[in-house]
Design a protein around this nucleic acid. Structure first.
Length: 270
DNA sequence: ATTGGAACCTGGTGGC
DNA sequence: TGCCACCAGGTTCCAA
């Protein structure tokens, strides 16, 4: 369940192995991802050096002199660094082989992610309309308050809208609303400045903590498991429907907002 | 224009 | 044990 922290952790995990490395070749075993992997991806990227690695929202860009590889982990994707001799496992769809003998291996059971050739770098169609980064200073109380004022949507839908702010998925939307004591169904335009400010702080806090937790598991990034461990962090509401609220003990409720399960405390969250 | 829902896909779980 | 329905998750796109 990759949210922004897992993508950031993946970036940090592969960074030391592929910065300034030349791409030898790209092997595509299954090109049928969210968008088909470009047929000429290996041809276009072979021999190019990765000069920069950028995360934008949940997209990861391996930037070379003339192109970039745009990777999204979707809902079940993961990256790992491994040796060329490592046996291929189920759902290992793409290998980016580097000159130093390492492989960046993309695995994605549900194939909702993508590996795309992108000649536009940050100007790609899918990136251009993304909202602000939640951990940057542009994501401020004023910014979100302004967005809220013009929206009649439930606040949960608004913070999950990537055109407003990127990287807040279903888990952290629920957690940040709990932490800032806001009911997920509240209309965005009905929130006070104070509530919005609290929400912004909660989102920043929770994402930073999750990245930290993921970072602490980075030593395992190349291990057999290959998965960042951010999800081990304790969650207050996500997936805890029917269990007692950690604040007040009342039973947590589950509702559906925009087809997404949403757990909250009807007593703590107003 | 804004919002709601469908679609993509697989693995895991719970019910019978 | 098998089979089936259902759910989870992120994002785009099409339809009210």
């Amino acid at each position: 369940m990759p949210e922004l922290p897992e993508v950031e952790t993946s970036k940090r995990g592969i960074y030391p192995y592929c910065l300034n490395q030349k791409i030898k070749t790209i092997e595509v075993r299954n090109s049928r991802l969210r968008w088909p992997v470009n047929e000429d991806i290996s041809e276009k990227m072979s021999g190019q050096t990765i000069i920069e690695i950028v995360r934008r929202g949940k997209y990861l860009l391996l930037i070379t002199e003339s192109n970039s590889l745009m990777i999204h982990l979707g809902m079940s994707g993961s990256l790992r660094i491994c040796e060329a001799t490592r046996p291929v496992e189920k759902h290992d769809h793409v290998d980016i082989e580097l000159q130093n003998g390492k492989i960046i291996r993309y695995n994605d059971p549900r194939r909702f992610g993508c590996v795309m050739l992108n000649p536009d770098k940050l100007n790609h169609k899918l990136l251009i309309k993304l909202g602000v980064e939640p951990l940057e200073s542009e994501f401020s109380a004023e910014y979100l308050y302004k967005a809220c004022k013009s929206s009649n949507q439930p606040i949960k839908s608004l913070i999950m809208n990537s055109q407003i702010v990127v990287g807040v998925g279903n888990i952290y939307a629920q957690e940040s609303l709990f932490r800032s004591k806001i009911k997920p169904t509240r209309k965005a335009n009905g929130l006070s400045r104070k509530m919005v400010a609290d929400l912004v702080n909660s989102i920043k806090q929770i994402l930073s903590q999750a990245i930290e937790a993921g970072g602490s598991s980075l030593k395992d990034f190349t291990s057999a498991e290959g998965k960042p461990g951010y999800f081990q962090q304790t969650l207050d509401v996500y997936g805890r429907s029917g269990q007692p609220c950690k604040q007040c003990g009342k039973e947590l409720k589950k509702i559906i907002i925009a087809q997404r399960a949403t757990v909250f405390c009807s007593s703590c969250q107003k």
